[in-house]
Simulated assay, not measured.
Amino acid sequence: MESGHMTTEQFLISAEQAEAYEDRFVPALFQQWVSPVLRAARLRPGDRVLDVACGTGVVARAAAELVAPNGRVVGLDLNPAMLEVARRVAPGVEWRQGDVTALPFGEATFDVVTCQSAIFFFPDPTTALAQMKRVVRLGGRVVVQAFSSLSAQPAYGPWADLVARHAGPDAVELLGTYWSEGDVGLMRDRCAEVGLRVAAVDQHVQPAYFPDVAAMVLTEVNATPLRDRLDQAHLDRILAESHDVLRSFLRGGQLVIPLAGYVLAAERE
């Protein structure tokens, strides 16, 4: 089921999608990973922090509180729509548009670089890590969070198999992208290749929250090319069978899905 990396153009989004990301995806999924990432970052007041592929800024906003009053936090993203939402929510943070393969900063500009739930979107993760290393100071930290492989996902694994049965492996290719950097050994090798020393890798399981099974299915479908490839009959069958596959993760009507992932902290030597 695991796919290769997507091209940059596939992830350019509209203003409406960016607002939905902040309103739905951040509280449902990404907020839960902020604390593990920032614990690994070991931020202190006065630190200079770059959050790469910041989205609407959930990590950058929390980092700004930790480095106050005289620290600096920059959130960088390729998507103008994401940055517009970020500026609205936290106008006091510095937001920059840019590409991770050519970060618009000088050598050793930052003490810490973070990258939460994004490295699997990059067409070239190794180049991205090299750029993160370049802009962090000697002894500084690069912290990357990614999700474990699909085979390690107790809910998403069986659900992706279900979708593949109805929509075909090609139609669900994007679902595989989220798990494509789940091999910690491979991530360690990437770090070694660019000259980053891995200091720690912590495994985590964090909850993802959805109002119910249908909300989860429709969120996943509408956020991917599946939206354009599934007719109503196939979607109805997926919805019906998803209730059986995900029933054990219902908690009082709410769907609480365990997501396995890891946080890797590396240092520039």
Rank of each mutant, 00 (worst) to 15 (best):
N79G: 04
A63L: 07
Q206E: 15
S151C: 10
R237H: 10
F249E: 00
G92N: 13
R197T: 12
V184G: 03
V263I: 06
D231E: 13
D244R: 15
S14M: 07
K133L: 11
E193M: 10
Q31R: 14
V163W: 06
L255S: 03
L186H: 14
P211F: 08
F105L: 04
Q153I: 12
M216G: 05
H243T: 03
A260G: 12
A208I: 02
E65R: 15
L83M: 00
V93S: 00
A215L: 08
G261M: 06
V184A: 13
D189E: 15
L83I: 00
M1G: 15
G168W: 13
A215Q: 07
F120S: 01
F11V: 04
W179S: 11
T8W: 03
P169S: 15
Q153W: 11
V205T: 13
V144K: 09
Y156S: 10
G157F: 09
L255T: 01
V112M: 10
S248K: 14
F120V: 06
M187C: 07
P123L: 05
A260H: 05
A64F: 11
F121D: 01
V143Y: 02
G55H: 08
C54Y: 07
H5C: 05
N70K: 12
M216R: 01
L255W: 01
A215T: 06
V135W: 12
C115W: 13
M82N: 00
D111T: 04
E181I: 07
V198D: 08
P225W: 04
V89H: 00
D231C: 11
R96C: 01
Q206M: 13
Y262W: 08
D170M: 03
I238A: 13
V205E: 13
L66E: 14
E94Q: 07
R87C: 06
V113G: 05
L43S: 05
V144W: 11
A200P: 00
L66F: 04
A146C: 15
G176E: 10
A90H: 05
S248L: 06
Y262K: 02
V26F: 04
R72M: 14
E84Y: 13
M187N: 10
N79Q: 07
I119N: 07
L150Q: 13
E84G: 09
V198Q: 03
A167W: 14
R165M: 05
P27S: 07
S248N: 09
T101Q: 15
P211M: 09
D51V: 01
V26H: 07
E181H: 11
W159H: 04
L186G: 05
F11W: 08
M1D: 14
P36M: 03
L239F: 13
V256W: 12
